[in-house]
Nucleic acid binder design. Structure first.
Lengths: 227, 227
DNA sequence: GTTGTAATATAACATGGGTTTTGTCAGTCC
DNA sequence: GGACTGACAAAACCCATGTTATATTACAAC
């Protein structure tokens, strides 16, 4: 995320192994100690945490161009699960190689720092979302974020994209039940903010959706990186 | 957070400026571009985000031994406010000096990486907390976390500590109203899990509090750092 | 001691979102 | 085609938490 073409080229010079995995495959489970760090070339993944009685919270959605588990560069036991949301194409780099690379190449190290810091910023925005906004704003906010991030990943038009998540997964990302996600999605559709055809979501009234979401993309830190 | 004595010594060699500020002073506001990065020597601080209509979510509590705004090493506009919770003693380091230092001293760079990654992990646990646990578990979880982190910061006994937050602030950290925080605090006290005398909280039944919270300290990544 | 202020407490009432259940629809496997 | 499955939908009910209002307490300022 947010790397220059030069940084990308340098990263591409690392020893890596291409891999493709199916949707819903676990890439990492809580408590494991991975030895590789994956970079997403295509597809979507997500991080989840579970309570002891099986309730789930999806805490991140990961998109192409992002590193999946920078945590494990420096922390040993993973604190969450990582799962493929769609079929996924990855480039896997050995952790030790990546760490040596960071030391040798400050520009690339900076790119990884930015990747990690932006994800923490998104975590904070989600905390505000789940903690202080009602279901309608929460869902609208997630749709706005996807719109902007999909556009950045050029995964689709910003205003009409395939939403590869079930309503249950949306609920788990928002702290809601799937039943209520269904209610709110229909309400947003009835009010003309979005249209849906199967899982194809299109934003039909961006200004009103943005207002309903109180969406401000500052927290995504797009293209405003310190030099 | 989680630095060796050696790392701390190296950090202490940086150009820094000591500063003391009063409780509730703003250290940074959303949208600003700071030029210094503060390290907490004494006292507590917190990060908050606001919705346009003034609702607040406290997204982090910062303790002695932690860096306050590593985000601003590499991202330009702050995405949240930082405010002193108590009277605070800080060591402020110019951002450019810190960045040069990271490049020159990989061990220190690693310490900062760990600091940032652990905070992101705490963000994720809070997301699970706010999204999927009820008010009682949420509050119990926060008390457990404070207990463990206070002990680490040697700010007090793990089982009895001064809680420098108002019930309103607790509510803002948990996505609850102050009225409900009050209800739940009393309930935890009635059930014998905690005792309170003014703001002095003591854990009177750690096993039951931990169970009520579903607390597992793995996410704090204490002393289990990759070498 | 009086006044002012911030924090805590308590009660009555309202409601957003959860729970449960049952149904529909679209794939896909045989 | 029929059977099976996973996702989406819809309605009825209800409870955890929010809202509003009004004490009460602690403590600082004077």
């Amino acid at each position: 995320m947010a790397m220059s073409a030069d940084d990308r080229a340098q990263i591409a010079a690392l020893p890596f192994k291409m891999r493709t995995i199916d949707a819903s495959t676990y890439m990492l489970r809580e408590g494991q100690r991975p030895t590789r760090c994956a970079f997403i070339l295509d597809g979507l993944a997500y991080r989840q945490k579970l309570t002891p009685n099986g309730e789930r919270e999806i805490v991140s959605i990961l998109m192409p161009g992002e590193f999946v588990d920078l945590q494990n560069l420096f922390l040993d036991e993973s604190d969450h699960d990582i799962q493929a949301l769609t079929r996924l194409t990855l480039a896997e780099v050995p952790i030790l190689a990546l760490r040596q690379f960071i030391e040798a190449c400050p520009a690339a190290g900076q790119a990884l720092w930015i990747d990690a810091l932006v994800e923490a910023s998104i975590h904070r925005e989600w905390l505000l979302n789940v903690g202080r906004r009602n279901a309608r704003s929460r869902l609208a906010h997630l749709l706005c974020e996807f719109s902007v991030r999909f556009k950045k990943s050029t995964l689709g038009d910003a205003m009409a994209y395939e939403l590869p998540m079930t309503q249950e997964q949306l609920g788990d990302a928002l702290g809601l039940t799937p039943v209520h996600v269904n209610r709110v999605l229909k309400s947003l559709e009835n009010d003309g903010l979005i249209a849906r055809k199967k899982r194809q979501v299109s934003v039909t009234d961006w200004p009103r959706l943005r207002d309903a979401a109180e969406f401000n993309e500052r927290y995504l830190h797009l293209g405003q990186i310190r030099s």
